[in-house]
């Protein structure tokens, strides 16, 4: 009896340890987002005192701060956070569902698909506003279906899906480049946005549709977080545990594509944020809980920080996607080498 009560106490302690570590990780990431957000608001070409920043946020007119903080830095930071959350969430959902870090939407062509549709809608059809996001979401789903269909042979094999996706992605990238080349009003800023992603010229009214997309699609994903965790044990095991695998997979694809495409329609395909956030979050969280929220927060930190670096810490100014691209490329190479070495899926 005593032996039994001591073992169950160990079981309880073990479980509480996981819960506690997870709570700590979430808090730290949340604090980090807020801290980076605050820095990007306060420190730019000039430093704005925190008191002034706060007053601008509360809607007061502050001479010398209202424009730089309220009109320039705030929309940029808000859009960065929202896009980062969407990319981080949508990316990790795919990676967990397909059990492969390479299966991220920006590697397998979904981001490029959404980007190509958005650039087509904006540049060729002269559209703007939420309709662009709808265009991007539909195209993203189309690409997801296409990649899935092309790689389907008695169940989807990880490596095949990724290779097909990389091919489709390259094709869609050239579509984007082609549209930009042949566009009548071709500006470098616009081009950079659609080629690597950028929050230059962000407006607060771009943030609202993105916020809705985040709440709606993010909510759907979070409601499936337990089933996603079960899927990590393999499809058969997940089903044996009572998860409805195909339904979960369908919901997760739609929700993740919704997030990725909405963010892409707003900021362009910010390179590798979807791809990097999940693995970084995974390193921190380990197996103590679902990766969804940690990865979303990591995405927000990545976009905020990378945009800040691109604006203020490098010689010259670079859009955020150039900085995240430089971060992501080495990791992509590392993963591909690893896949080659262990021969097959990760």
């Amino acid at each position: 009896m005593t032996a039994h009560s001591s073992t169950i106490n160990a079981v309880i302690a073990n479980r509480r340890g996981r819960t506690r570590r997870y709570a700590v990780v979430l808090s730290v990431l949340l604090v980090l987002v807020v801290a980076v957000f605050a820095v990007t608001l306060a420190v730019g070409q000039s430093v704005t005192p925190p008191g002034d920043v706060l007053r601008v946020l509360l809607g007061e007119e502050v001479a010398g701060a209202s424009f730089s903080v309220g009109q320039l830095r705030l929309p940029r930071a808000v859009l960065s956070i929202l896009a980062g959350l969407c990319f981080g969430l949508g990316g990790v959902a795919f990676q967990v569902m397909l059990r492969n870090p390479l299966a991220s939407p920006d590697i397998i062509g979904i981001t490029s698909g959404a980007g190509a549709a958005a650039v087509f809608a904006i540049v060729v059809l002269s559209m703007s506003g939420p309709i662009v996001s709808v265009f991007a979401i539909v195209a993203g789903l189309g690409v997801a279906l296409l990649v899935y269909g092309l790689s389907f042979r008695n169940g989807v094999a990880g490596t095949r899906l990724i290779l097909v996706g990389i091919g489709v992605s390259a094709m869609l990238q050239s579509v984007i480049a082609y549209i930009l080349q042949s566009a009548p009003a071709w500006s470098l800023q616009e081009a950079m946005r659609w080629l690597t992603g950028s929050v230059n010229g962000a407006k607060l009214d771009q943030a609202l549709p993105l916020l809705f997309a985040l709440l709606f699609f993010g909510g759907v994903l979070l409601s499936r977080s337990r089933d996603l965790e079960a899927l990590r044990l393999g499809d058969d095991m997940a089903a044996a545990l009572g998860t409805r695998v195909s339904r979960t997979r369908m919901l997760v694809i739609v929700a993740a594509v919704g997030l990725i495409a909405s963010a892409t329609a707003a900021t362009g395909p910010i390179a590798f944020v979807a791809f990097l956030s999940g693995p970084i979050a995974g390193r921190i969280v380990r197996n103590d809980g679902s990766l969804l929220i940690p990865s979303a927060l990591t995405g927000a930190v990545l976009v905020l920080a990378a945009d800040y670096v691109g604006q203020h810490l490098l010689p010259g100014r670079y859009p955020v996607g150039v900085v995240t691209g430089a971060l992501g490329a080495p990791y992509l190479i590392y993963l591909i080498i690893r896949v080659n070495r262990i021969g097959g899926s990760l």
Binding site: V11, N14, R15, R18, R99, R226, E229, A230, R232, L233, G234, D236, M237, L241, G242, T243, R286, N287
Partner: peptide, 19 residues
């Protein structure tokens, strides 16, 4: 079945409680 990378025994076993 697939064990997520780095998962501990207690964690894996507790996932049997899913349903």
């Amino acid at each position: 079945p697939i064990a997520p990378e780095g998962i501990t025994v207690a964690d894996l076993v507790s996932r049997g409680r899913h349903p």
